[in-house]
Design a binder for these strands. Structure first.
Length: 420
RNA sequence: GGAGAGGUGACCGAGUUGGUUGAAGGUGCGCGCCUGCUAAGCGUGUGUGGGGGUUAAACUUCACCGAGGGUUCGAAUCCCUCCCUCUCCGCCA
């Protein structure tokens, strides 16, 4: 959420930000609602002050045995007016708040403007592996080694739901543990394991709602949502709190299943593990003071990169252009891992700085050394999602006979198994 | 799911015949003093958000005692709905 004061004073900037992110919000209406709300608030306050003042006199009069029925009668009118104003005010306020929640975050000045084609290359690590044979894709390799349970899993739920099996299940579990351990012991994150079912307020806090309701799985009976990422539960951990400054920074790593309806993306990258409705991910989240968030963003990018490097997977890093940037993010780096069998890069991690956008929505603040209360900055990054890591890994480490060599760092996590 | 208890400021905890209680008291924390030692004492200050006001403060006003409604001239206090926590029972892993 943006600060309404900022919006009032920077209408052009906000308008441009909306356009750059291809959002549709009626900024003009929001400003009108804002004005209307302010006026109503003023009228209400004035009348209430009067009401409070007189109401205090009544017990005084009674004490002195003076008849107050006249005065009370008078006040009945004011009471009615107060009620009417209050109703109107809360109606306008609700409308205003709802509209305000639909304004996206403003992108950082270094973010390229435009659609996906404007995503900017930052760097790459390693190089596309060369093979003496034609590399197979993950579907063929999985079939050959009995790693996945695709058809039967979709029987259970539907298309877009997958199962891991045999050494494939082992490998996926190994990846999760390896990544968790890496972030905990090498990067100093604290692990949290939180509910994957969250309420509406929580989903609003991180910015999934109201905009993306159609992309979320919802349990209608209880009005709960399945999280699309652990970011949601972890970021909202401090919702509504004012943290003492000594509690900052906080760095969390959390493994969770993620649920995404992927509404409107049917037919795109649907093969195997590429785009699925449920997958596992290890997520890193940080709460920091504003002045350090951009330095921390770089650190987090490196944290995600470290995993790929440890696994020996070639990747490149991109800065997402405004049109590709998520609603709540100010800047996002995407890591794209090379999948030799598929012959393309797969988005495997997003590392984002939300600045105070989520903190405002979820009201996550801290008391600074000067005793002022300020919003924290929140950041998160995938570190990493397992399905595409799985793809890149088996495609990269495949042998001509279709077997897969386990990279050294994962061997201990596979109980010494060196080949799939 | 059934029965009961409860949700007040950073924390603990008063406040239920509605009215100087935005909230006693305590703890913690800030500042000052005293004293000097493994600490204590004394004084003083200490919520958030919105509006007005100021160069900035001061000051002023409104709202907030789980959330939302209602009753009333007036509600933390009464009524209704919902949420959450705890205890016991049942059920299930």
């Amino acid at each position: 959420m943006l600060d309404i004061k900022f919006i009032r004073e920077n209408v052009d900037i906000v308008q441009r930000a909306i356009k750059n992110k291809n959002e549709k919000c009626d900024l003009k209406m929001i400003l009108e609602l804002d004005k209307k709300k302010q006026k109503l608030q003023f009228d209400y306050d004035t009348l209430r002050a009067e009401q409070n003042r007189v109401s205090k006199q009544i017990p005084e009069l009674k004490k002195q045995n003076i008849n107050a029925t006249e005065l009370i009668k008078e006040m009945q009118n004011i009471s009615k007016k107060v009620k009417a104003l209050s109703t109107e005010l809360s109606e306008v306020s609700v409308k205003f708040e709802n509209e305000l929640l639909c304004i996206p975050n403003i992108s950082h000045k270094e973010v390229p403007i435009g659609g996906e084609s404007e995503n900017k290359f930052i760097k790459e690590w390693g190089s596309k592996k060369t093979f003496t044979f034609k590399p197979k894709d993950h579907l063929v390799l999985s079939e050959k080694n009995d790693l996945l349970e695709l058809k039967r899993a979709s029987k259970l739920t539907g298309t877009g739901f997958v199962g891991y099996k045999n050494k494939g299940a082992l490998l996926e579990r190994a990846l999760i543990n390896f990544m968790l351990d890496f972030h905990i012991w090498k990067h100093g994150y604290t692990e949290v394991s939180l509910p994957v079912l969250v309420n509406r307020k929580t989903m609003i806090g991180t910015g999934q709602l109201p905009k993306l309701e159609d992309d979320m799985y919802r349990i209608e009976q209880d009005d709960l949502f399945l999280v699309p990422t652990a970011e949601v539960s972890v970021t909202n951990l401090f919702a509504g709190e004012i943290l003492p400054v000594k509690m900052l920074p906080q760095k969390f790593v959390s493994y969770s299943p993620c649920f995404r309806r992927e509404a409107g993306s049917y037919g795109k990258d649907t093969k195997g593990l590429q785009r699925i409705h449920q997958f596992n991910k290890v997520e890193i989240v940080r709460f920091v003071q504003p002045e350090s968030s951009y330095q921390v963003l770089e650190e987090m990018l490196k944290d995600a990169e470290d995993i790929l490097q440890a696994l020996g997977l070639h990747y490149r890093a991109m800065t997402l252009a405004t049109g590709d940037l998520s609603f709540a993010s100010a800047i996002t780096y995407d890591l794209e891992v090379w999948a030799p069998g598929a012959g393309k890069y797969l988005e495997i991690s997003s590392v984002s700085n939300f600045e105070d956008f989520q903190a405002r929505r979820a009201s996550i603040r801290y008391r600074d050394i000067d005793d002022k209360v300020r919003f924290v900055h929140t950041l998160n990054g995938s570190g990493l999602a397992t399905p595409r890591t799985f793809i890149a890994l088996i495609e990269t480490y495949q042998n001509e006979d279709g077997s897969v060599t386990v990279p050294d760092v994962l061997v201990p996590y596979l109980s010494g198994l060196k080949k799939l």
